[in-house]
């Protein structure tokens, strides 16, 4: 009887050790998975944010471009002039 108790206790101890080991592993995998889930959540949130921003501002931008065509064309023309004079200076 005593031997049975001793061997059973040993088995229990071993299984408890395994439990400890398994818990450690579980915790490791769980936090890894949680981190990834968090990262995915953060990325998704940012994508939603950007999409909202694009929705809001694409219209603003298009309206502005429509209304201020000349201003933008003139700005681009100045950029070309700036490039021309910069290159001429470097020659």
């Amino acid at each position: 009887m005593k031997y049975v108790v001793i061997s059973l206790s040993t088995l229990l101890c071993i299984s408890l050790c395994f439990l400890g080991f398994n818990l450690y592993n579980f915790n490791k995998e769980y936090s890894k998975a949680k981190n990834i889930t968090n990262e995915i959540d953060v990325a998704n949130k940012r994508i939603t944010e950007i999409n909202n921003y694009l929705d809001e501002n694409n219209n603003t931008y298009n309206e502005f471009v429509e209304k201020n065509k000349t201003k933008i064309e003139v700005y681009e023309k100045w950029l070309r002039y700036q490039k021309e004079v910069t290159e001429a200076l470097e020659k």
């Binding site: 694009l54 933008i72 700005y75």
Partner: peptide, 14 residues
């Protein structure tokens, strides 16, 4: 986003 915000920044301060 970068592109649009740059363009917006440009048109807002053209």
């Amino acid at each position: 986003y970068q592109k649009v915000s740059e363009r917006l920044d440009l048109v807002n301060n053209i």
